[in-house]
Amino acid sequence: MAEDEEEPEEEPLIPKPITDKVKAGYHFITDYGSEATRGVLKNNPLFVLLLGFCPALAVTTTLDNAIAMGAAFAVVFVASATLISTIGEQAPKDYKKILYITIVAIFTTAVSIIMQRDYPNHLENLSIYFPLIAVNCIILGRVQYHSNQTSPPRAFLDALGLSAGFSIILIVISSIRELLGTTQLTLNSEILFQITHPIPFFLLAPGALLTIALLIALTNITNTGIQKLQQILKERKEKKEAERKKLEEQKKKEEEEEGEKK
């Protein structure tokens, strides 16, 4: 009995191999990292999940607007996703949707009050599209089908990644539209970039639709290109491995033949 009791005490004294710890840490980082980064490329809310086009089209006339929208969206999304994931399965089944909508609306109201104090101009520019954050398809969809089934840190990172993907695309669209529409790209009334001839078409409604159409087509082209490239690389690898195997077999055969001769 005495020996049995001593054993578990000794175990922690033996240091675990460092590689194991590093491996665990690496897994931890990649696991949570992929949770955060997949929202940017693999699960991009606008171009892959095809959600939430209303703000992407309406607010992207200037870069300032897009940044304000992206920031407000991120705050609301991250806060409500984290809160809802802590509620989890305890939410009453029949009133789930209304509960979620109310939580998101509460955070939107809070952000609007803060923005009214600190950035009243930005809030005015966003006009009716600001309150519509509360019924944004990305937030409500993600909250209903993902956040309420995962742990809070995961939901937090997922929301962060998705809102980063959303804001990046808003910034791209708005910088294209502002640059082509008004000849200059401004950030806080500082001119970043200038061209000579304006194309006012891009500031109007059809310009927004056309810009988004071309951007989606561009991403489709690059995606198919990347897939083709990956296929070619795979084929090359397979060829090389096949050649290596052939060489090894030849060597083995030669060795066997030599052995037989001896």
């Binding site: 909508i101 109310t102 939107t108 609007s112």
Partner: peptide, 14 residues
């Protein structure tokens, strides 16, 4: 007026 967002959305949903 500050509570417009939450009250509108809540009542409309219900």
């Amino acid at each position: 007026e500050n509570l417009t967002i939450i009250i509108f959305i809540f009542t409309l949903a219900i």
